[in-house]
């Protein structure tokens, strides 16, 4: 049975903070994602019970560096690409 329906897509889009323009766009995403997830179910036929997941290709752990101070970006540099600033801060629309 299909896992992806219109409601799933709307739910996921909300989680990802992406507005979907209209119903037609939502339907198109549903169809495309359904096809891809359906294909991913190919994995179901593999017995992976005993296998450990491999999250990373390198087995590096606890990479340390010396705790020496260095020059950070200036405030001006850090904000140079922002579209909306005020008094040296990022300015955003109201949160609530």
């Amino acid at each position: 049975m299909s896992e992806i329906n219109l409601d799933t897509v709307k739910h996921v889009a909300n989680l990802a903070r992406i507005e979907i323009q209209d119903e037609k766009a939502a339907e198109a995403f549903t169809k495309e994602l359904d096809k891809i997830v359906d294909y991913a179910h190919l994995l179901d036929e593999v017995d992976l019970g005993e296998t450990e997941p491999m999250f990373h290709a390198l087995d590096l752990t606890n990479v340390m560096r010396d705790d020496t101070p260095s020059e950070p970006l200036s405030q001006d540099e850090a904000m140079s690409n922002a579209k909306s600033t005020k008094d040296g801060h990022f300015k955003v629309p109201k949160m609530l």
């Binding site: 739910h11 997830v37 997941p53």
Partner: peptide, 24 residues
Amino acid sequence: LLGTFVLSAGHYDQHYIRAQKLRG
């Protein structure tokens, strides 16, 4: 959207973890 779906509650173990196992 696909990635958010895969990582969302109820799908993580079935999809994400199994994919990482296949990687192994």
